[in-house]
């Protein structure tokens, strides 16, 4: 089995109307043995920007610290919060630095991007383990259940979803996808990011 499947786990992000959502399962395993049902792999970067790290668990921890350091350095130097597009480039270049000995992580990024007029517009992106960026207008997926996530999301997602509808859509997509994946599941967490607040909910899932 590939090292990308060693610990299991999946992340998905979706665009809604003036909002974005990012969600992941909570499983941590070693091959087919489940170890933990509260292993979070989505982390806040700013108030309106989240990043998810599905992949090798040790690299989840490492990259979380790497990006905490680099985002702090950016904030101090620039004296402003990092924007989603900039952060995506940071993720990409950080991963590409290790082009020939990569971190085994495929990051998913979701946030609200500040426009010149001061409003916010939804932004999602994902990269592969060496930093190739995929900007998408609808949804991005990664992790061991990615094929399943693609299938369900393609069937359920529609443009212009309001926050609560987006929550339902991303939750249903994630839950039904991970229930068909042996390496993902054991509960889930969903963050819906809107202009004013972030709604975070933990979902109970099948434990088999």
């Amino acid at each position: 089995m590939s090292i990308m499947q060693h610990n299991g786990g999946s992340v998905i992000a979706m665009v809604g109307k003036d909002c974005v959502a990012i969600a992941s399962d909570l499983r941590l395993g070693v091959q087919s043995l489940s170890i933990s049902s509260n292993f979070e792999k989505i982390f806040p970067v700013t108030e309106r920007l989240y990043v998810g790290f599905p992949g090798l668990a040790t690299d989840v921890t490492t990259l979380r610290e790497v990006f905490r350091y680099r985002v702090n350095m950016y904030t101090i130097k620039e004296e402003r919060a990092i924007e989603p597009t900039i952060f995506t480039q940071l993720v990409s270049s950080t991963l590409y630095e290790r082009r020939f000995g990569p971190y085994f992580i495929e990051p998913v990024i979701a946030g609200l991007q500040k426009t010149p007029s001061g409003s916010y517009e939804p932004f999602i992106a994902a990269t592969d383990l060496i930093g190739c960026i995929n900007f998408a207008k609808d949804f991005v997926v990664a992790g061991t259940a990615s094929e399943k996530l693609f299938g369900v999301a393609e069937g359920l997602w529609e443009p212009g979803l309001e926050p609560e509808d987006l929550f339902e859509t991303i939750s249903q997509t994630l839950m039904n996808a991970v229930d068909r994946d042996a390496f993902s599941g054991w509960g889930a967490i969903v963050h819906v990011i809107t202009k004013d607040k972030v709604i975070t909910r933990k979902l109970k899932g099948r434990m088999d």
Partner: peptide
């Protein structure tokens, strides 16, 4: 792998 989980959801009403 794309279709079956969608069917679980829409036919068996899984997670609903």
């Amino acid at each position: 792998s794309l279709v079956q989980p969608f069917l679980d959801n829409q036919i068996y009403f899984k997670n609903q």
